[in-house]
């Protein structure tokens, strides 16, 4: 069986996997990082989204061997060692952007990629387009969009204009 090494949440990890082992199976079953969820297993729902070398990907649709040598970040890698939440997590909490929480790890990982890749601004339309790969059955998305909008300002160190709402 192939032995692979990669960096997960900043720490070196290695594991023996089968060629057919999915990245999400490596994360959940071998590395016990169960924050990454499997919602559909058919590449549709985005509950399994993690970051691989700076890009958000569906870890249910990538082989573990394809991630050999890569830098992988999962939801467990976001908060700092002292427990301080990542600004995106903080904004999800602040704006009530989750209910059951099943979709949340994938949403947060997609949202961080979206914010990082739009340094010049991020419109509501761009947020909604950017979330097409993440399905939420609870919230109706509206608060998720609000949370991401607010996190954009925090993550880019800008003042958020006061909304009239």
């Amino acid at each position: 069986m192939p032995q692979i090494s990669l960096t997960v949440n900043g720490k070196p990890a290695s594991a023996e996997v089968e060629s057919r082992t999915l990245l999400v199976e490596l994360l959940r079953e071998k590395l016990h990082l169960t924050g990454t969820h499997v919602g559909c297993d058919t590449s549709q729902c985005g509950a399994c989204v993690v970051e691989v070398d700076g890009k958000s990907v569906k870890s249910c649709t990538m082989l573990a061997v394809q991630a050999a040598g890569a830098h992988v970040t999962t939801i467990e890698g976001l908060a700092s060692a002292d427990g301080k939440l990542h600004p995106m997590q903080e904004m999800f909490r602040e704006h009530h952007a989750l209910q059951c929480g099943y979709c949340t790890p994938g949403m947060v990982m997609s949202a961080i990629d979206l914010v990082n890749s739009h340094p010049d601004g991020l419109s509501e339309e761009q947020i909604r387009h950017g979330l097409e790969g993440n399905i939420c059955r609870c919230t109706g998305y509206h608060n998720i969009v609000k949370a991401i909008h607010a996190a954009w300002f925090v993550m880019h160190g800008k003042e958020m204009p006061i909304a009239a709402e």
């Binding site: 590449s43 985005g46 989204v49 890009k55 958000s56 990907v57 569906k58 649709t61 990538m62 997609s110 990629d113 979206l114 950017g130 979330l131 097409e132 790969g133 993440n134």
Partner: peptide, 9 residues
Amino acid sequence: IGDRQVRSR
């Protein structure tokens, strides 16, 4: 095409 994660790969 598809969604952002599909477009990444």
